[in-house]
Simulated scan of single mutants.
Amino acid sequence: MSDQLKWFKSSYSDSEGGNCVEVAFATAIHIRDSKFPSSPELQVPAPVWSAFIAAVQPGA
């Protein structure tokens, strides 16, 4: 499945190879460590991801 997903890095990632995550949107949200693209992925249902993002927004 990972090969078919369009992955993008966090907007907080730097260009120096620091710790960061990559995310791909599909029927679920896929999350992985950008340093190890073949590593296991965390898959989260879209409503759960939306709730997480809402909870960590400044002022939430």
Rank of each mutant, 00 (worst) to 15 (best):
F36S: 14
G59V: 04
K6T: 15
I31N: 03
E22F: 00
K9A: 13
W49M: 02
P47I: 00
E41G: 04
M1F: 11
S13F: 08
A24C: 03
M1V: 11
N19C: 13
P47A: 01
I29G: 02
V56W: 01
Q43S: 08
A28T: 08
V56I: 12
C20I: 03
A60N: 12
F52G: 01
H30T: 02
N19I: 12
F8N: 13
C20Q: 08
A60R: 11
A55N: 10
P45S: 04
E22N: 07
S10A: 06
K35W: 07
P47H: 01
V21K: 08
P40N: 05
I29T: 09
P37T: 04
I29K: 06
P58G: 10
Y12D: 04
Y12I: 10
K9Q: 09
A28E: 12
G17R: 10
W49N: 00
G18I: 02
L5R: 03
C20M: 05
N19G: 12
D33Q: 03
Q4Y: 10
L5A: 07
C20F: 05
S10M: 11
A55M: 10
E41F: 04
F25I: 08
F25D: 06
D14M: 11
S39L: 08
V23E: 02
K35T: 01
D33W: 01
R32Q: 03
G18K: 09
V44M: 00
A26H: 11
F52W: 02
G18V: 03
P47E: 00
S15P: 10
S11V: 12
S11M: 12
D3K: 06
A46V: 15
Q43K: 14
L42R: 05
K6Y: 13
K6Q: 13
I53M: 14
A55R: 08
T27Y: 11
E41L: 08
V23T: 04
P40S: 11
F36V: 15
I31E: 03
E41P: 05
A46F: 05
C20T: 01
S34F: 00
A54G: 12
Q4C: 13
F8M: 14
Q4D: 14
A28Y: 08
D3S: 14
T27G: 07
S2G: 15
S15T: 14
I29N: 02
S13E: 09
W49S: 01
Q43A: 14
A54F: 08
I53W: 10
P58W: 03
K6G: 09
